[in-house]
Design a protein around this nucleic acid. Sequence first.
DNA 1: GTTGCACATGACAACGTAGTCAGAACCTGG
DNA 2: CCAGGTTCTGACTACGTTGTCATGTGCAAC
Lengths: 361, 361
Amino acid sequence: MSPPLSGETPRRRPPGMTDVARLAGVSQKTVSRVVNNERYVSDEVREKVLRAARELGFRPNTAARALITGRFRRIGVVSLGTALYGPASLQVALERATRAAGVSVTVANTAEGQPGAVAEAIEWLLQQGVDAVVISEPIDEGEPVDVDTDVPIYSLGQGQGLPEARNLLPGEFNRHASREAVEHLLDLGHARVRHLAGPGKWYAARERAQGWRDAHEARGIEPPPLLEGDWSPAAGYRAGLELLRDPDVTAVACANDDMAIGLVRAFAEAGRAVPEQVSVTGFDDIPAAAYLTPPLTTVRQQFEADAVRALGAVLRRLPGAPADAPEAEPRTDGRARSLVVRASTAPPPNRLKGEPGKDAR
Amino acid sequence: MSPPLSGETPRRRPPGMTDVARLAGVSQKTVSRVVNNERYVSDEVREKVLRAARELGFRPNTAARALITGRFRRIGVVSLGTALYGPASLQVALERATRAAGVSVTVANTAEGQPGAVAEAIEWLLQQGVDAVVISEPIDEGEPVDVDTDVPIYSLGQGQGLPEARNLLPGEFNRHASREAVEHLLDLGHARVRHLAGPGKWYAARERAQGWRDAHEARGIEPPPLLEGDWSPAAGYRAGLELLRDPDVTAVACANDDMAIGLVRAFAEAGRAVPEQVSVTGFDDIPAAAYLTPPLTTVRQQFEADAVRALGAVLRRLPGAPADAPEAEPRTDGRARSLVVRASTAPPPNRLKGEPGKDAR
DNA sequence: GTTGCACATGACAACGTAGTCAGAACCTGG
DNA sequence: CCAGGTTCTGACTACGTTGTCATGTGCAAC
């Protein structure tokens, strides 16, 4: 059969287990058993039921099932409603991992910048009926998320005022990877590295900024002033204009690739060549990063792996878990190397020949 | 109250209308009326009920509601599971427009490249219970989508074997905008324009290719051979290498910005300057487009507006529409100008001075 | 004072499924 | 042969809500 003739058809009642049961000559309960793959159904009956179900185009009614079981086999994902590469990748990865487990995903984007937008999005999801909520890009709205519900709320990163156990991803990755990028620059011989951070309310932005501080402090260097942008290329461009006024800047670590793009552009327009005069790093490794002019040194993220690992924890707790399940999952160390060195970084201009710092490690 | 102590709590039964009714001293049916904003409830009772509901933290059970009404107030969106800027933007816009109407969105990403993946995703959504399905990026899998259901299936673009009425967006936009970009190049004096298309199975890619052909044919020019990529910068780079072997190439129109980035890179590495020796256009106007080297001439898409308009049609038909509702909605002409001219396009190298073609129109 | 209608509320059934329990059919071992 | 289990099946009910219908109340028109 194909789609119906018109959009406004009365839409007849879809077949239910009762219809299948009648056709197969068994009880509704038996159909239920077959559909749910329960034990104690003879192969013969199972076959008969499946045939009947196929013939009628039967699809179990999830509403009825959810009503009686009290569980929806659906999770809610709160996303920030941007088409940013990182969040978008994460969301796709989340859906994949989830569907594989027979769980569906309902998304809710937060209204940008609105205070309480996250709580609002969570409330919306709870009203839709979900077994768990995952906050995809945790941000700090000032007050902790506080919703009256028994539905577990998780966060893909630190913060949100949730108990630590609800943090599905180690914050260390951002911090450590960011530090690694900065150390790469310091190793090249740069005296200090400027940092163009993401919005301060994003925990991911804070962690990357902290990694940048770590790198300096580990060498006893006072970190220079921090710049902040909103992840956009435009913000990177503005930050670039700002930095151009300081002739001493030789290296900038950006909190994402998009801002790095804008920043590089500002330098290019001003005739400050990258990487000859100024080195720039990004974060994310967007697909275009390798093809920019110059190709961008950046940090690769592992969204797919992160999502799978994170969701493992969520899904395991859905069905009414064994309570003594192995709480401590592998949690990959978060310190895996992931810096991708390309052509946007080089030794600073004044140290001309030789490769100082290369042996500094 | 805050989240519960532990993830594995027994999760007590959430309050229902019966509980609210008991507390408010009315019947359960009256609670239902208040919750659904029905007429014929005295202000006094309404107040009492709302207070009780608030006190108990009552949230209506959508499963029970869906069970009896047969409608879920939820739509399914089939997405291609890429973090591409276009699709990601569309998805965000869809969710926004939908939530504003009190309808939630469940996403299903197709398994890349698998035949029948779209039908599979639709089937999954139908099993979850949705009132309509929207295919976000229509592609041609060879055989038309054919699912046995009364749930309406729409497509954000031509194709998919669905009846024309199910096409929510005019294909003209892609075709016309692409033509416009090519005409811009021809007007600059380029003799012919190469085209780096998206995958042939994407209808959007076909439409953009057609627009490119249109532009040539309108001037009686035989369009040169078509190149095809997979939307990725890497594909653009490979196409660039290919084109480098032809010294006569002076202009390339790419079907999206990412491929344009890769292509520009290939030319840059080979010393063929953009735009001095070769002009390049993109499509989408990703945020980074204005900050690339050189800034990219491209076509701006209006995802938000498209999504709102498209969903208007879907949502209007959900509740059991008036049947004689104004079927013909504005359908903005799809020919709105949207070319954003930046620095990646210029007259061809051999015609040095003067600006030929500028008056060709 | 009765009729009629708008307003306000509640009792009851129904939606399609899964849980509970009972019972039938069939074994196995004594 | 029966006791006691395992396998298989169905009748009945509950889940939390909305739809239907009945009932009651107040007020205006006759």
